Simulated scan of single mutants.
Amino acid sequence: MSEPLLRAVGVRKTFFSGGPGGRATRRGSGGSTPRGHSGHTEVLKGIDLEVHKGQVVCLLGPSGAGKSTFLRCLNHLETIDAGQVWVDGEPIGFKLRGGKLYELREADVARQRRDIGMVFQRFNLFGHRTALENVVEGPIRVLGVKPDRARADALELLDRVGLAHRADAYPAQLSGGQQQRVAIARSLAMKPKLMLFDEPTSALDPELVGEVLAVMGTLAREGMTMVVVTHEMAFAAEAADEVVFLADGAVVETGPPDRVLKAPEHERTRQFLARVLS
């Protein structure tokens, strides 16, 4: 089998509370415990994950399991305390020099993120820009694509997510499901190698969930490499090549959806599925 497109090894993350002024603080790689801290929470306890090109991996687990934090560590939106993440063989957020890892400058991390699309729970669209303008922003400003080319590509992407007819609409004129589909088109416009989805339907009314999952299902069938944090069990069962169940910051169980969702081996997984599927 080829080398994985995404590889995470021993990823750990701790959040500290009760820092100066009572604010929550976070320790980055090589950081020290803040003075006056009253406690800490180890959110990730050594997570390993491999995702090969074209695979869809769904991360499942209860609230507070560390799923969203782990996803944010994959593109260095959160700085990890230990372990390492590689995308297409490149260490994310760090460089190796003299046998030691050094954190990259933010500009260099931003360059790496061009290859990693991310769709958040909230849509994060520019409210003063139309759907089309939201999609063309990244290619023009970051990738240097000519405006005419970027516009043509953006219209094609909006058509792909079923919104070509709303290209000139502003986010406030769109439903939540439509806004999320624009957000997906915006990420795809950067031509990423990997797409990360952080509970993309959790902020939607139930009747709007299906339209977003349909777009994601199409991407999966077209071979987009995806890591998806979700509570949508039907989507995981249909679209995922592998399901990873996390609890308390650790991987409890992993495997194909038919086994993990229908015949889980671990009691913790069985308890979770009994609640969400009841």
Rank of each mutant, 00 (worst) to 15 (best):
Q112H: 03
L125D: 04
R111Y: 04
D153C: 10
R151E: 10
V119W: 07
V142D: 02
H128R: 06
L158C: 01
D159T: 03
I116H: 07
N134C: 11
Q112K: 00
F120W: 11
P139V: 00
T130P: 13
A152T: 15
R113D: 09
P147F: 01
V145Y: 02
R105P: 07
F94M: 02
E106S: 14
F94G: 00
L158I: 00
R111F: 04
A131W: 03
H128W: 08
G99R: 10
R129P: 06
E137V: 11
A150C: 08
A154N: 02
G93N: 05
R151F: 11
L155V: 06
G98C: 05
G138E: 06
K146A: 10
V142L: 08
Q112V: 00
E156L: 04
L157A: 03
G138H: 04
E103Y: 00
L143H: 04
R141A: 15
A110P: 00
L104P: 13
R151M: 15
V142N: 01
L96T: 05
I116T: 15
K95V: 10
L155S: 05
E156C: 14
F123S: 03
F126T: 14
E156S: 13
V109F: 01
T130D: 14
E156Q: 05
G93M: 02
P139L: 00
V136T: 14
L125T: 07
R113G: 13
D148T: 13
E106Q: 08
D115R: 12
V145L: 01
A110I: 00
A154Q: 03
L157C: 01
I116R: 07
N124P: 04
P139S: 01
R129T: 12
H128I: 14
I140A: 02
R129W: 06
P147D: 02
E106G: 11
P139W: 01
H128D: 06
T130L: 11
E103V: 03
K95T: 11
D108E: 12
Q121T: 13
R97S: 06
G99S: 09
L132E: 14
L132F: 07
Y102T: 04
L104A: 08
R113N: 11
L158G: 00
R97H: 07
L101H: 13
H128L: 07
D108R: 12
R97G: 13
V109K: 00
F123V: 10
